Amino acid sequence: MSDDVTPLLRTSGLSVRYGGVVANTDIDIAVDPGEIVGLIGPNGAGKTTFVDAVTGFTEYTGHVSLEGAALDELGPHRRRRAGLARTWQAGELFGDLTVAQNLAVAVAPTGLRTLFSDIFGSSALPTETVDAALELVGVPGVAARRPGELTLGQQKLVGVARALVGGTRVVLLDEPAAGLDTHESLEFGRHLRRVAEAGVGVLLIDHDMSLVLDICTRLYVLDFGVVIAAGAPALIREDPRVIAAYLGTARPGESETAAPASAARPVGDTE
């Protein structure tokens, strides 16, 4: 992160408490324009809780700003309109809608009457907007198809496209590569780079360490809701605190800084 660039997204002293349980403690994170930043940590570390707080879905103390403007008094829908979007761990697409209609859901006005008349009746988004989002994530030409006709990798990319419509400046991706095989994950990462190259800031949470280490410029590591390390991927993977908390210990004969695949890919998240 450059000192002379205003971060697209910044959190300062962000903390989340559920009764007597502290889920996040004084988290300071910044995401620059065109940057992919990773947020990693073991199950239950507080990663999803952090995303919930940043996007307005749970109460917190501290501050969240987008391009220097405070978001703390805004609800989730107003943060979305300001340019802050997210995906969800269970981010299934609507099977009865076309891809274009799935994208329209993200920016549809609230209210059931509007939802059913605008979304089911049409895409409710200009064709060029839909096409541009799908082109950006590498799945052009699928706007009229339904999710069930696409591969899992394509569905994941459509989910990212849905988060990008509506003038998104920063997107928080919560385990978007879950379920993808090695080849699909590589392709997914390549398309995420294109999203960042378009100037969008990306905060990536994922347990696929090959993906994270390959495409992220910086990493933050959470453990028990506290940032225990931050920096370039090469430094993070050698940090003894990170190895102990998350990456695990190498098998005999391997470098102590290289985590075995089984340790680097825990399944699911319980935050």
Rank of each mutant, 00 (worst) to 15 (best):
R10Q: 12
T11W: 14
S15E: 02
V16T: 06
V16K: 06
G20I: 05
A23D: 06
T25E: 15
I27C: 08
I29D: 04
P33K: 11
P33C: 13
P42T: 07
G44P: 12
G44V: 11
G56S: 09
T58C: 04
T58F: 01
G62R: 08
G62L: 08
G62W: 06
S65V: 07
E73C: 05
L74S: 13
G75P: 05
R78N: 11
R81F: 06
A85P: 08
W88V: 07
W88T: 13
G95H: 10
G95M: 04
A100L: 04
Q101V: 10
A108Y: 13
G111P: 12
S117A: 14
S117T: 15
F120E: 07
P126A: 09
V130Q: 00
A133I: 05
A133L: 07
L136H: 11
V137P: 00
V139R: 08
V139S: 07
G141N: 12
G141S: 13
V142L: 04
A144K: 15
G148M: 08
E149F: 08
E149T: 07
L150H: 04
V158L: 09
A163Q: 09
L164G: 05
V165A: 06
T168G: 10
R169Q: 13
E175V: 12
A178V: 01
T182E: 13
S185H: 02
L186G: 15
E187L: 15
R193G: 03
V195K: 00
A198S: 15
A198E: 11
H207R: 14
D208W: 02
V212N: 02
I215N: 00
R218I: 05
R218Q: 13
Y220Q: 01
Y220K: 02
L222P: 04
V226P: 09
V227S: 14
I228A: 08
A230C: 08
A232V: 11
A232K: 12
L235W: 11
E238K: 05
D239E: 14
D239W: 12
R241L: 10
G248S: 04
P260G: 10
A261G: 13
A264C: 11
A264I: 07
D269Q: 10
